[in-house]
Design a binder for these strands. Structure first.
Lengths: 207, 207
DNA sequence: GTCTATACTACGATAGAC
DNA sequence: GTCTATCGTAGTATAGAC
């Protein structure tokens, strides 16, 4: 039951924000009484933070295999580092394109605009692993970049995947599709791969 | 007074969403009575839509000169098209990095996750001009791409600027800065330019 | 542990004074 | 055009039955 309460909470908080979501509605949609939120989580804020923790856990689990693989190649030779980054980015893009990510991505994006204690938990619990792994790989793939440039590059690479969620409504409009079917998703991922490859390939030094 | 009401509304709706924001708080922060919202906008929903319209107008005005320049170069030769795109992207990045964009960007990002009638107004009133101009320029810069590829490329290029707002909290963490000063912003824009340039340069065909 | 009942606060809308 | 006053509704929290 507490599991269902968490899933419903992520959905409602993501859609309406902390203030906009109502504990009555969350409890009702979870098939229980509102007072069970008080019993299990101590109140609305406790439920909100528990929802953030649950997202962090799911995220870590979802990217777990890819992240483990990426960490193994943290000291890999350059071409292998590039390929590892492409794999990681494709995993992130696949998540962002999946309908399953809609509820928790909404929650995270909302927290990004106005971070609270919940963002701290999201970042330390799951996001930091991803970003720091990505930065390490970028440094491996592009040893010519300094620390800032490598971090900025990581942000923009990560941003390719993020855009597919954060700008979803615009993506639909620009492509002219009301839904993104498997074929479209695959073509978007292909394009993302091409972009990343070009960004990760060191510039030829002109004579 | 109705101007102040709109600005406050954008801020409150952006932060708390439609449900979470309260007309009492908006009116109070604007130095007027709640009933003036009913008088001027017919109610909470009317104020929300008026806020979206106001954002669309501001956005159009803000990017106006750059967009006008971009449209002039819609049929420009390739190198010029690339340079025009870089200019447009830099303008968008500068907006996204500016503290002034925080309130309305929050509003738009929220609408992107769960579009309502307000997104329709934002898109048709301002965003479509930007995206369609960008798509036309990308086709000019990369005639080797088909329609879908050009649109996907436009989305990801646009995404570079979007990421600076939508993932702002993560940007702070990854870079290790609590605020983005002028120097950091300039280096981020420089990096964005490098990425865009690489993406817009046609691949050499390997023998 | 899960429910119902209730206390208290804040919401949006509206009527009416000025 | 802007204010105050008020109505009905819905919010969170809490107490207490079972």
């Amino acid at each position: 039951m507490t599991q269902q309460l968490l899933l419903t909470a992520i959905d409602h908080f993501g859609k309406s924000g902390f203030d906009g979501a109502s504990t009555r509605a969350i409890a009702s949609a979870s098939g229980t009484a509102m007072s069970s939120i008080t019993y299990h989580y101590g109140g609305k804020k406790g439920l909100y933070l528990a929802a953030a923790d649950h997202i962090a856990e799911s995220l870590s689990e979802g990217l777990g295999p890819i992240l483990a693989n990426a960490r193994e190649h943290a000291a890999a030779p350059r071409n292998q580092a590039v390929e590892t980054i492409l794999l990681l980015l494709d995993g992130m893009a696949t998540m962002m394109l999946s309908p399953a990510s809609e509820p928790w991505a909404r929650f995270i994006i909302r927290e990004q605009q106005q971070p609270t204690e919940a963002f701290e938990r999201l970042y330390l619990g799951a996001m930091r692993d991803v970003t720091e792994t990505l930065v390490a790989l970028v440094k491996r793939a592009r040893p010519d970049l300094d620390d800032f440039e490598a971090r900025a590059t990581s942000i923009f690479l990560h941003g390719h995947a993020l855009t597919l969620r954060a700008g979803r409504a615009a993506v639909h409009r620009v492509l002219g599709y009301e839904t993104l079917d498997d074929d479209v998703c695959q073509r978007l991922r292909k394009r993302l791969r091409v972009h990343a490859l070009r960004i990760l390939t060191e510039e030829e030094v002109p004579s």
